[in-house]
Each structure stands twice: as C-alpha cells, then as structure tokens.
Amino acid sequence: MNARPTDGHSTDGQNKNQQAQERAVYRPMVDILDTAGDVVLLADLPGVDESHLDLTLDKNVLTIRGAVQQPSLEGYMPVRMEYGIGDFERVFTISDDVDRDRIEATVKDGVLQLTLPKTAHSARRKINVVAR
C-alpha cells in the first residue's frame, strides 16, 4: 500500500516509514473554505504532531504528509479495529493566485490549518484549490 512517491526529502518520520513497509497510507478528510483574504484548508490528521508533518509545495502541487504517532500496542490482542494505523497523504493543486511566501500552517488537536493568502491583485478573484 506504499504508493508514496520518492522524492528528495528525508525526515525522521519518513525513514521510520520506510522501515515499516506495511504501514498503510490514508487520505485525510479536508474542508476548504474561502474567506475574504485567504483560502483556508483544514485537514483531519488525528495522531499527527507538528514534528511529523511534512508539507511540500512544488510549483502548483501541494503535498500534505503526516506520520501517525501511536502508542505502542505490543502485547495487546486486538478486539475491535475500526481505524487502521497508518500515515496520511493527500495532494492538492493550487492556482497561481496564492501568495506562496505567506502560506502559514498550524497543527492543533490533530487538525492542520493551512492558510493560503491571496496575492494582492487576486484578492477579488476566485482561487482554485483542487483536491486530487
């Protein structure tokens, strides 16, 4: 299930993932909303903290990647498993009207908030963020 593209980045989280080849990759649920000056993207990433979150912007392609930090359940017998333990990954295409230098990301309680400010001249135009 490791369909992750190999790129030049290598963080601690990713090294761990490469060791654990069997880890699944999940697509996080997102809300995308347009406020007056910004486009805001909210993504549910339960179990991911700021040090295991990897955001990359390559031209128009924004990639969110999070490595889930779960308490070890060694020695435990599973009784009921509704969510699999794995990592999160999702790719978005953003339009040129986003001011790349002022993108802000915060993570709190397992939710990533990504603020994509509109460039001055595009503040009145619609900005497309397309989920892929």
Binding site: L42, P46, P71, Y76, R80, M81, E82, D109, G110, V111
Partner: peptide, 22 residues
C-alpha cells in the same frame, strides 16, 4: 468517532480518533 480496542491479560486499551475536539 472511530475506535480501536485492544486487550492484554490485565488491561484494556481504547483509542478513539477525535481530530479537532478540545
């Protein structure tokens, strides 16, 4: 919320995904 439950001889471990909840 989605829940995982696991157990050992002397403990039950429950985890629930509650993103964005205080």
């Amino acid at each position: 919320p989605k829940v995982d439950v696991a157990e050992t001889n002397d403990a039950v471990h429950v985890t629930a995904e509650l993103p964005g909840i205080k």
